[in-house]
Design a binder for these strands. Structure first.
Lengths: 342, 342
DNA sequence: TTGACGAATGTAACCGCTTACATTACCCCT
DNA sequence: AGGGGTAATGTAAGCGGTTACATTCGTCAA
């Protein structure tokens, strides 16, 4: 029953009439309960319940020049990594009065900028953007967004406002170190998409090799094509073509790693003895594969939840904790695919 | 430059003043271009451009009692299947004046009902819901939603309004038939989650066996747990425990199939000779696996795109095509994992 | 010439809610 | 008893658009 006789939605006025008070009082009962008497509050609550009143978000946003939406901009939908972040975001928002407005930039900074501009028109309660590689114009927009802004998926020295993520560079170095410590002497790199985040991982890979005095040779193989399991197989095949000495691969993500593993099996390469494989993100399948595949665990769901929490805190917070950076870290998950022993 | 001197957003009034016309004219230039003179239209467009005006969606929604959002309710984020549908939805919406409002029901009909109620408050331009298993209350809500409603992921005899999908029952029967035609005599069924859609697939599996005079024995193994690759392995292990005669499995989705494949490899079962494996949905990895895994291809992206298109058409359409059902069908993708030959 | 008419634009009410400010009703003090 | 507070509620002005209706103006037929 959220329509009245004329089949029009129940408005706040209907509730006010039912109780015999002014709309202002009903509005206050909802937004500022502490200034309304207990007696009225319970009558109003009862009327809301019996009439099935639900506030009109547009009217609320217009009148208060502030909407209850948290705007989220991610690069991609189909990428599981972001799905997990979304999952965290949604579950953190659930039960609060906020809702999520989602936009996809398709990895295009310009389209991200437009989305930011568009979303800002809604005067969102908060904003979550991916990474730190916004255009200058986008940076400027975020700078006076008028709401808490969280950058997710990375950590860095100069957050706009809030930030939660981990260091792709450090994670890649750690993974590379793991390979080397397992005795692999000629590790290669398989990269796809190669957006700024992936670039930082490549950077970490290279620096770690350099630090250990290992020449990367021709073993860094990347493409700008979007990643897929199939692509992982192709990349490995190509890499082995130009650099047959490769004895291990650090893959930019788990799809690539899985595809590379299948390709290795097709070639009857023994994993981990002849080829070590390490993925990135540690999706659920990595531990279930045969052999189980080493990966770098990242806390994607937690990133989403944490981002929302940062916004909620900033919104509630008497002390706005601007400039806060949360480093969720990462965790190398060593599995059979790199367990060569020495 | 979408803020004026006082750092307030540029409103329609600013545009009107710039051009020297009333706000009404600006509004009409945007909503009803055909009633405004060419001269004014171009001056208004220029002013909008130079001022960087962007309409306030809340004000628009409030005044027109109609918002430009298409509300979408899906059961889950993390499930790749729905990510693909979303992908289609977003890409079809891109470039139109509509935006997407997304909600997740977590497979809970009650929470779906609440979402529908909530979203309807926004007077959406259209609504996309998953499947046909809404609660009675939800059905009632949809019945007078006041906007086009599309049910996706299924086909069925009695759509609410619009519908686009395929028959899970038919697809499962076809997959089962494929297994039998490949010479498997004791096919089993591995199911997870077991929501209504999955139930219909199980139904198809059973009916096909019955039609062929094959006893299912104890080879139907299901759980309500959410599916995962790991679970696929467990399910196969359990199934083989109670029904060692199983020579093929029809898996409720590709994750389960992949997990089962890994488990089979762990047990040194020869695929496809000793065990045939068929998945469902035909995600990208299936063709890349080693061996490649047979699956039932479904048109998920197309479902999302099609759903939006149906709404757009209904919105534009002078002739509302209510009751339209689009069957996108499915396609068996036979691969090595079931190629036993005779 | 004049009045009817249609096209183009303006006027103003309204969408449903928020909120600054005004009002009312007590309560407590002096 | 009268005055100053304070807490609770009402009044009304927006928020930024949309749209029914009014107005203006040029065109054209009688």
């Amino acid at each position: 029953m959220n329509k009245n006789k004329e089949n029009k939605p129940v408005t706040m006025r209907d509730v006010a009439q039912e109780v015999g008070v002014s709309v202002a009082t009903v509005s206050r009962a909802l937004r500022n309960p502490e200034v309304v008497s207990e007696a009225l509050k319970s009558k109003i609550a009862a009327a809301i319940e019996s009439l099935g009143y639900l506030p009109d978000p547009a009217a609320r946003a217009l009148a208060s020049t502030r909407s209850d939406v948290i705007a989220v901009i991610l690069p991609s939908i189909s990428n599981n990594v972001f799905a997990a972040v979304m999952d965290g975001i949604y579950s953190a928002v659930e039960g609060t009065r906020y809702s999520v407005q989602l936009g996809y930039s398709r990895y295009a900074p310009l389209s991200e900028e437009n989305l930011i501009r568009l979303f800002l028109r809604q005067r969102p309660a908060g904003m979550i953007v991916t990474g730190i590689d916004q255009t200058d114009a986008a940076q400027a927009l975020l700078a006076d967004a008028g709401c808490p802004v969280v950058q997710v998926m990375e950590t860095g020295p100069a957050p706009h406002d809030l930030m939660i993520g981990f260091s792709h560079y450090d994670a890649a170095r750690a993974a590379t170190a793991h390979l080397i410590e397992q005795g692999y002497r000629n590790p290669g790199f398989l990269g796809a998409r190669m957006d700024p985040r992936t670039q930082r991982r490549l950077h970490g890979f290279r620096d770690e090799l350099r630090a250990r005095g290992i020449d990367e040779g021709r073993r860094v193989h990347t493409t700008t094509r979007p990643s897929s399991v199939t692509l992982g197989g192709h990349l490995l095949a190509e890499l082995l073509g130009v650099a047959p000495e490769t004895d291990a691969i650090f893959c930019i993500n788990d799809d690539i790693a899985l595809g590379a593993m299948f390709e290795a099996q097709r070639r009857n390469l023994r994993i981990p003895d002849e080829l070590g494989i390490c993925g990135f993100n540690d999706m659920e399948m990595m531990g279930a594969a045969e052999p189980p595949i080493t990966s770098v665990r990242t806390f994607r769901r937690e990133m989403g939840e944490g981002a929302v929490q940062l916004i909620l805190d900033a919104l509630a917070g008497d002390v706005p904790e601007a400039g806060k950076v949360v480093d969720l870290g990462f965790q190398i998950m060593p599995r059979r695919s790199t367990m060569r022993g020495r």
